[in-house]
Amino acid sequence: MEKHVVVIYPHPDDEAFGASGTITKFRKEGIPVTYLCGTLGEMGRNMGNPTFANRETLPEIRKKELIEACKVLDVELQMLGYRDKTLEFESRDEVAERLKGILEKIEPSLVITHYPEHAVHPDHNAFGAAAVEAVSRMDKNKRPTVWAQAISMTHIQDLGEPDIVNDITPYLKTKMNTILAHKSQAQGMISKMKQDSEDFEATVKARLGTESFYTWKF
């Protein structure tokens, strides 16, 4: 059984789409979970249809959504204040050292993050790489396991099958509520899924019912 789980993703909603079922399972088992969120996703292009936000108001909207999503998941939230779409330009060394300091205070047994170079978005790749680097710098005796999430089209071809495949259908309702808390990002996607599918529930289960990770080898 895990002692404490730390989730490290760059954007509000990464936790919802990527790991909220797994997080819910841990919380149901009484395991504390802390989410280190890198940015507020303030450079996101999704302003709603009809438009509900502009570049000035979006950061505060996404911050409120993030806080609400973390209430749904019952996790502790730490917002790290980096700027959206710039993480690839931050000093990897400085970000890794900052994350290492946080992790050494929390002392998690497991870290969940993106798999560098297989996470599609430059922020995902950069923050995942910094998280892996942070853990690699920790004392080997206190180093947590890392579950790295790959979402590129070629990840199975390049990396093989994931080590961990969690069936999260028992927690799908909580996952959907977490996604829906990020209303600015989820609204369009949910509408499109409803338009494109004859059986919405079956589509949700097929697309969102499993969460997969690779165990990072140091």
Score class of each variant (00 low, 15 high):
residue 61 I to G: 09
residue 21 G to K: 05
residue 175 K to E: 06
residue 214 Y to T: 01
residue 188 G to W: 13
residue 199 D to T: 04
residue 164 I to A: 09
residue 167 D to S: 04
residue 198 E to D: 15
residue 53 A to Q: 04
residue 204 V to M: 12
residue 79 M to A: 12
residue 142 K to M: 10
residue 131 A to N: 11
residue 132 V to E: 15
residue 136 S to G: 10
residue 80 L to R: 13
residue 151 I to T: 12
residue 166 N to Y: 14
residue 200 F to I: 11
residue 82 Y to A: 03
residue 152 S to H: 08
residue 169 T to G: 02
residue 79 M to H: 13
residue 158 D to W: 08
residue 160 G to Y: 08
residue 111 V to C: 01
residue 168 I to C: 07
residue 190 I to V: 15
residue 137 R to K: 12
residue 66 L to M: 08
residue 4 H to V: 09
residue 15 E to Q: 06
residue 151 I to H: 02
residue 196 D to W: 08
residue 24 T to C: 11
residue 203 T to Y: 05
residue 150 A to D: 10
residue 129 A to P: 10
residue 23 I to P: 01
residue 175 K to T: 03
residue 171 Y to M: 05
residue 213 F to P: 01
residue 192 K to P: 00
residue 136 S to M: 13
residue 136 S to Q: 13
residue 189 M to L: 14
residue 103 L to V: 10
residue 40 L to F: 07
residue 19 A to V: 11
residue 54 N to Q: 01
residue 77 L to P: 12
residue 36 L to I: 03
residue 33 V to Y: 01
residue 134 A to P: 05
residue 168 I to K: 02
residue 150 A to S: 15
residue 71 K to M: 04
residue 215 T to L: 15
residue 112 I to G: 03
residue 58 L to I: 06
residue 40 L to W: 03
residue 48 G to C: 08
residue 150 A to V: 11
residue 204 V to E: 07
residue 146 V to A: 00
residue 173 K to P: 00
residue 71 K to Y: 04
residue 90 E to S: 07
residue 4 H to K: 04
residue 69 A to G: 12
residue 187 Q to T: 15
residue 78 Q to D: 07
residue 154 T to I: 12
residue 38 G to A: 08
residue 43 M to P: 04
residue 94 E to K: 14
residue 98 R to S: 11
residue 31 I to S: 09
residue 139 D to M: 07
residue 188 G to S: 15
residue 68 E to G: 05
residue 69 A to S: 14
residue 215 T to Q: 15
residue 156 I to G: 04
residue 117 E to Q: 10
residue 46 N to K: 14
residue 193 M to N: 05
residue 35 Y to I: 14
residue 58 L to K: 02
residue 210 T to V: 13
residue 213 F to A: 03
residue 72 V to H: 02
residue 46 N to T: 14
residue 184 S to D: 01
residue 29 E to R: 13
residue 190 I to C: 08
residue 63 K to R: 15
residue 172 L to W: 01
residue 198 E to H: 15
residue 210 T to L: 05
residue 62 R to V: 00
residue 48 G to N: 07
residue 44 G to C: 08
residue 176 M to F: 01
residue 62 R to N: 07
residue 141 N to H: 12
residue 143 R to A: 11
residue 37 C to G: 01
residue 180 L to N: 13
residue 23 I to K: 05
residue 72 V to T: 10
residue 89 F to S: 09
residue 218 F to K: 08
residue 72 V to Y: 02
residue 205 K to C: 09
residue 139 D to W: 02
residue 118 H to K: 02
residue 114 H to G: 02
residue 47 M to R: 12
residue 165 V to T: 12
residue 14 D to E: 10
residue 87 L to T: 04
residue 78 Q to K: 13
residue 157 Q to S: 12
residue 188 G to N: 14
residue 24 T to P: 02
residue 13 D to Q: 03
residue 11 H to M: 07
residue 21 G to L: 00
residue 2 E to K: 13
residue 149 Q to V: 15
residue 85 K to H: 06
residue 191 S to Y: 11
residue 52 F to W: 01
